[in-house]
Amino acid sequence: MSAETAASRNAGAPRQGKGWALLGSELSVLFRRLRTWAMLTALAAVPILIAVAVKLSSRPTTPGRGPLFLDRITQNGLFVAVTALVVCVPLFLPLTVGVVAGDTIAGEANLGTLRYLLLAPAGRIRLLLVKYAGAVAFCCAATATVTASGALAGVVLFPVGPVTLLSGDTISVGESAWRSLLIAAYITVSLLGLSAIGLLISTFTDVPVGAMAATIVFSVVSQVLDNLPQLEWLHPWLFSHHWLGFADLLRQPVSWTSFGDNAILQAGYIAVCGALAYAKFSNKDVLS
């Protein structure tokens, strides 16, 4: 049996598939994991908690206290999503992204599936790219979850109307939905550098928990350094430097400077970490 079919295939039978199957499989494995859904559920809970807490609170929120726009939620439910994103950006989103990005290679190595993927053969570079694409997909899903859950909670619990921007101008509900999407896109881009760092760390170990923890620690350290005025020279190089810069999308007119700076910075991190991860992984002895 095998010899015949093997011979006929070797003789030039059409080889099917462009290799997208691995990406599809990666996404389906990622989103069929209970862990992924648990994290997305936790993220979805943040805006709901905020909305419910504000709804139940009898005291009106003092302007200027608490996260951005917290005081406006009661007047306009559309602010729930933005407030939730502000709350999630420093810790919750990096936490979940760190788990997914740190797990990319180390998780497969830990399960022993890494060697079978390589023997399939998935190809090391292709596997690395697909794994990163999976992490990027999770970044999109995570920010989209917070945005969608926030918008939903806001619409259900509070009145909805024109939205006031930081500049004091008001925009229509439709325009505000567009800006919310822009903010979600901005935050997704913000998380790409961290994902690349997670991927890189992940190639160095067979212990996924270690890679996840290291990635999360990186995100915390970067934010702490960003708050030390003594290290001002370092700030523009920290991957978390522009994380809260999405406020620029809430100005009138939209200030694209932060978006551009952030994208360039994240691209730099992707290039450097990607190159290092490629070098490490293509030389790695898979012994797990």
Binding site: G268, A271, V272, A275, L276, Y278, A279, K280
Partner: peptide, 13 residues
């Protein structure tokens, strides 16, 4: 040669 891109890209940046 495999470590080369890892050095070239940061250097180029």
């Amino acid at each position: 040669q495999r470590w080369l891109p890892a050095l070239v890209i940061p250097f180029a940046l």
